[in-house]
Design a protein around this nucleic acid. Structure first.
Length: 398
RNA sequence: GGCCGGAUGGUGAAGUGGCUUAACACAGCGGUUUGCAAAACCGCCAUUCGUCGGUUCAAAUCCGACUCCGGCCUCCA
């Protein structure tokens, strides 16, 4: 069976067909480095690391472009910078460095590109400018640039939502500067910010003609700009956490498609959450465990095994006991990998059953079962294929 | 109010019409090994899949109703 993925756009499991099998493009929304990332972020990284590895296995290592951004300019970072009395870039740099170390510990492959807001400012400003020029955005009195959702009739389609039926302001107060409650900010002018940014970006410096207030980009525009910059108008796959469907991904679609008139992505993938006692783990609820904390408490491969034991579209409940229960089988697999490395003479390929499991919408649970069976029956003949399977799941010996 | 998910043994979890009296794993129990223990290995461990009804030769899997739980509706992975 060829790769099938559940596409949020259609809510169906569909056969995956890339635009160009020589260069499959895949984008995952990365972190905002204002603090240590938590294990909810880790789930995204691990799940889509497996997808990246599977795509490389299928299309060849040099035929997959994986993009994962850092939103390194953001109000939370600025806030944090004030608290820490450091430049925002230093704050971002600090947490990016830790994140990279953590990803390495977790045996996540480096993405092909890791763009940052701070280095994609040109593309972002150009996009905002073009949206204003074409009437998809307007400049408010404060200098904020705001997306005009009424101009984009299919806004909210990703989540199958009719805007008129939504409770605007259900959680966040509606900004009075907006023409419509659903409109969202593309560019935030400094004048309005509670905490002024030390390094304001001046649109004119990047050639903007239709807006001018010094400030910084809004939350959603960076992903639109970066994916266009690195992968063109249409990505094969765009992935992220379930909570990004709305507003983040819905806004990205509105921004990108207004200008390109092409789908931003052909396949949208969303993973479910990590919960704690049945409740979503989140920064705002305070019920989170950071990745560095998790790595202090548990071996990386125990965390990986624990995460991959559950299908990515189902919630995983976090408890120390649950991760500990994964440590034993993970360690056994690691020993088997070390043993297989001593036996294998050539590079192998995974078994058909194993690949079929992953091709079925990334059934890592079933793939793990296949890997366990292969470990139990490990021999000199099967060592190479066993190693190939462990590699696709990103499980390593150390 | 609208939209979207989920409910499978003591536990995590796969399974979307017959190959599943339910994969794989954790815990537990019995055994082999061991000076003892640990580790390792072998074996046992759900006739049952939220509730009620329906379709079918056949349902955890399809349909309907219901109950409960979670998520989203501009901080969030």
């Amino acid at each position: 069976m060829a790769l099938h993925l559940t596409n949020t756009l259609t809510r169906k499991k569909e056969l995956f067909t890339p635009q160009n099998a020589q260069n499959v493009t895949f984008y995952t929304c990365g972190i905002t480095p204002y603090d240590y990332a938590h294990i909810g972020n880790l789930r995204v990284m691990v799940v889509f690391d497996v997808l990246f590895r599977l795509l490389r296995q299928t299309y060849g290592e040099s035929h997959v472009t994986y993009i994962r951004n850092f939103t390194d300019i953001d109000d939370k970072i600025i806030q944090r910078a004030h608290e820490m009395n450091q430049p925002p870039t230093d704050v971002a740099e600090k947490y990016i460095k830790v994140f990279h170390q953590n990803m390495q510990a977790m045996n996540c492959l480096d993405p092909t590109h890791e763009p940052r807001v701070s280095t994609s400012m040109q593309e972002i400003v150009e996009m905002v400018d073009a949206l204003v020029a074409s009437g998809y955005a307007y400049v408010a009195a404060s200098g904020d640039v705001i997306y005009r959702t009424n101009r984009f009739p299919t806004f909210g389609q990703l989540v199958n939502r009719k805007l008129a039926e939504q409770q605007s302001g259900a959680r966040v107060e509606v900004d009075s500067e907006k023409e419509s409650a659903h409109d969202f900010v593309l560019w935030k002018a400094n004048a309005k910010s509670a905490t002024k940014m030390e390094q304001a970006f001046i649109p004119a410096k990047y050639g903007a003609k239709h807006f001018s207030a010094a400030g910084r980009p809004g939350w959603h525009i960076e992903c639109s700009a970066m994916s266009k910059q690195l992968a063109g108008a249409t990505l094969d796959i765009h992935a992220g956490g379930e909570d990004l469907q709305f507003p983040h991904h819905s806004c990205e679609i509105a921004q990108s498609e207004a200008l390109s008139h092409k789908p931003l992505a052909n396949y949208w993938l969303h993973n479910s959450f990590i919960t704690v006692g049945g409740q979503k783990m989140s920064k705002s609820l305070g019920n989170f465990t950071t990745i560095p904390q998790a790595l202090e408490q548990f071996p990386p491969m125990a965390l990986r095994y624990w995460l991959l034991q559950t299908h990515y579209r189902k919630p995983v409940d976090f408890s120390p006991d649950a991760v500990k229960a994964a440590a034993k089988p993970a360690a056994r697999l690691q020993k088997a990998i070390a043993a297989a490395q001593a036996m294998a003479t050539a590079k192998g390929t995974p078994t058909e059953a194993f690949i079929a499991a992953l091709n079925d919408d990334l059934n890592t649970s079933k793939a793990l079962a296949e890997l366990n069976k292969a470990a139990a029956e490990l021999s000199a003949e099967s060592a190479a294929e066993f190693l190939a399977m462990a590699d696709v799941l990103g499980i390593n010996a150390t």
